[in-house]
Design a binder for these strands. Structure first.
Lengths: 280, 280
DNA sequence: GCCTAGGTCCCGTCC
DNA sequence: GGACGGGGCCTAGGC
């Protein structure tokens, strides 16, 4: 990857930490830095920085593996799987050390623009304005944020070793049925999970009390037509794999179904059992 | 909604702006505030604030309709459609004025925890620690972030009047076909978009050069088995609605299909045409 | 409010 | 790398 010489990420790569800090102190904007006896500088923040000071702070934060945030008035260009443009407005940009980029407006849970993890972040000055570029390949995608004003730049270093403990997923529902198969129906015997068929992997494969093959499709929440079609594909594939006279039961397990899904179930001779994932 | 008297959102509601600013100046942490001749205070930032100062700054930011961000070491509890817990780690929390909440770690495009727009944010001190709660009803969901350390609090006020201009969506692909139906096949005549069937709305409904009914399902990207099943549901529903001898053609339009999807298409007598949304 | 389907979906998993 | 399906999916559009 080649960059013009004015791009600060190269400068920052060449700079040692000491000189970076010197640059930081010399910055024109009001600055703040929070140190910690154990971890050193954890956060660095500039307010109303000059473009050059902002560029250096952003590049330094990226190089240090920090979460970098930039708030200010900017335009956003995206080109990749689709193409988008966003006129100037005040937005919050976050660059993560794993290569993800997020552009948030004041509205919505979702970012208005983004880049998934794996991108290379680059920051430089162009015509006196800060430009942040996040690039990736396969697919080729480019996100470019051009700031008219940078009101604040922050870099947050920290540690986070833990993982989310989540309960109430489809896997929990499966566990519940495997531990107590009679919840599904008396005499049901699970034989395999994720059993492969030509149509894909079946959530639970088993037999009912009469020995008939049963395909179980699990959903953690109320389902619509798509889940019924999914179950149908598995049942069709398994019946095609067995002798001509064999029939396979298909059971959808979910808290509830929509009307249309219920009709589809009847049309295709599939069954429904109401079950939810456990609370804890 | 009732809150214990120590919750600062009530205090902040009762406080006038002047007294808020006084609190802000008196805060123990290093502070920064960027003003603008036109908009007044646009950003306010505290570093290493005391719990009380952080609480007041967060509550003030929420009340002002700002984007509020908090960085520090925290645990996260979620309870609603599922249940989750996250042990202590350094994370970036964003509260939006529309009621959305986001908890971001250093990894991933997705927040580790969140709350959709429409929530009520609340902040208070408990045992000397900052707690942020975002609540909503229907469904009942609660997000609780408890900070061990708050390294920085920021509030960003701004304006953003513009909307994203996005090209390359399914709607663009539809437009392309409606403008030049021969792209699909010579003589194809679109008659309706979003035509309702008992199975749902069909992307494009039309007739081929021989007068046969055609259902077109559009996808902006490479598709798998689900899109084929979707098309199949529409074709089935339309055939059921027509006289017994009528047959309906189903055409999937997408850049490409997977092998399994291709097999499904053949099995069900459906067709595929390779087309992409326009670049611009 | 529910239903239905799109999304630059993201994300993990398994091939 | 592609494929397939889950997700606390979110979000928009209808009804």
């Amino acid at each position: 990857m080649t960059s013009p010489p004015h791009r600060s990420s190269e400068l920052a790569n060449a700079d040692g930490t000491v000189r970076c800090r010197a640059l930081f102190i010399r910055s024109a904007g009001r600055v703040g830095s929070v140190s910690d006896p154990e971890f050193g500088h954890r956060t660095e923040t500039l307010q109303q920085p000059s473009p050059e000071a902002a560029r250096d702070a952003i590049a330094r934060g990226i190089d240090r593996g920090a979460i970098v945030t930039v708030y200010g008035r900017c335009t956003v260009d995206y080109d990749g799987r689709a193409t988008s443009y966003l006129e100037a407005g005040d937005r919050h940009v976050m660059l993560k050390p794993d290569g993800a980029a997020l552009v948030h407006t004041a509205e919505g849970q979702q970012p208005v623009n983004w880049q998934p993890p794996g991108c290379d972040h680059d920051v430089f000055c162009e015509d006196g304005h800060i430009v942040i570029e996040s690039l990736r390949t396969s697919p080729d995608e480019q996100l470019r944020v051009r700031f008219q004003n940078v009101l604040q730049v922050s870099a947050f270093a920290g540690s986070d070793e833990t993982e989310l403990a989540l309960v109430g997923t489809e896997a929990d529902l499966r566990r519940r049925i495997l531990e107590e198969p009679d919840l599904l129906e008396t005499g049901f015997m699970p034989l395999a999970t994720e059993r492969e068929t030509p149509a894909g992997a079946v959530d639970i494969y088993g037999e009912d009390s009469t020995g008939r093959a049963v395909v179980v499709e699990l959903k953690r929440r109320r389902v619509g037509p798509d889940a019924v079609s999914q179950l149908r594909r598995y049942v069709d594939a398994l019946e095609r794999d067995m002798h001509a006279d064999a029939t396979v039961r298909g059971i959808l397990v979910a808290p509830s179904v929509t009307d249309r899904a219920n009709r589809l179930l009847s049309d295709h001779g599939l069954e429904f059992i109401s079950l939810e994932p456990p609370d804890e």
